[in-house]
Write a protein that binds this DNA or RNA. Structure first.
Ligand SMILES: [Mn+2]
Ligand SMILES: [Mn+2]
Ligand SMILES: [Zn+2]
Ligand SMILES: [Zn+2]
Lengths: 119, 119
DNA sequence: ATAACTTTGCAATACTGTTGCACGTAATTC
DNA sequence: GAATTACGTGCAACAGTATTGCAAAGTTAT
């Protein structure tokens, strides 16, 4: 199962929801995939994005990625097709927080139309 | 009801979830508050943030704010107390998207510890 | 007073995420 | 190789949030 789920994420090259992954199989239970994704996340193979679509999405990490801290990148949710893209070449900038606020993590989601949905 | 809900948001000065607002009343139904918030949002009195906590949060807009487009600011979710702050004096920077991507909207959430939760 | 419209509460529903449990399979130990 | 242990899977149930249909109550206009 792990190989198959990994394969789906690898093939699609974008962030997928639990449901979307489930759709790519016949007769595999949601919970199995859920737990597989959890395992992946615990072992830093994937990262998750809450893009505001209602479902958390999952995408492969790059080999050298340590998503929990330094490899944070923008994500892009297309309002037409609903696909979520990792903008991996766009690291998020350092933010100067007001006094007393302590940075731990960030989730920067941009919404708009993706290259497939222009025109 | 609208005056009361507005009052709660005004008093708290931070983004509150539907549930948190509900807690501040006796015997007011969730759906009534939900619809009140929807009305506020349709009339640009408030904006909502999906901070990844599982519940959407709502906060008052400034007088001149047109949240849908230009008045986008960072939001800060405290991982200790769970409170969400509008960093209204911190407009989000312009982002240079890759070719083909079209900016419409953004949701930038930073997680960490807030001033109340240091030490 | 009557009619038309709005607001509210209740209940039901949808959707996502999450967990307990039992069972089958694989790995380990003796 | 048989007994034991650990692991992976499916099913079903449950939790939390968001959302809607409907009827009753309240408000405004005629
Ligand atoms: Mn990503
Ligand atoms: Mn805000
Ligand atoms: Zn698209
Ligand atoms: Zn705090």
């Amino acid at each position: 199962m792990r190989e198959l789920v990994y394969g789906v994420l690898d093939k699609n090259r974008k962030a997928l929801s639990l449901y979307e992954i489930e759709q790519q199989f016949d007769n595999v239970d949601r919970s199995t995939i859920f737990r597989t994704l959890k395992t992946f996340q615990d072992n830093l193979l994937i990262h998750s994005v809450d893009d505001g679509s209602g479902a958390v999405k999952y995408a492969l990490c790059d080999d050298d990625c340590t998503c929990s801290l330094d490899d944070l990148h923008y994500h892009f949710l297309c309002t037409k097709c609903g696909q979520t893209h990792c903008l991996k070449n766009m690291p998020i900038p350092k933010v100067d927080l007001p006094e007393g606020f302590n940075f731990e993590n960030a989730n920067f989601v941009i919404k708009g139309t993706c290259p497939n949905c222009q025109g």
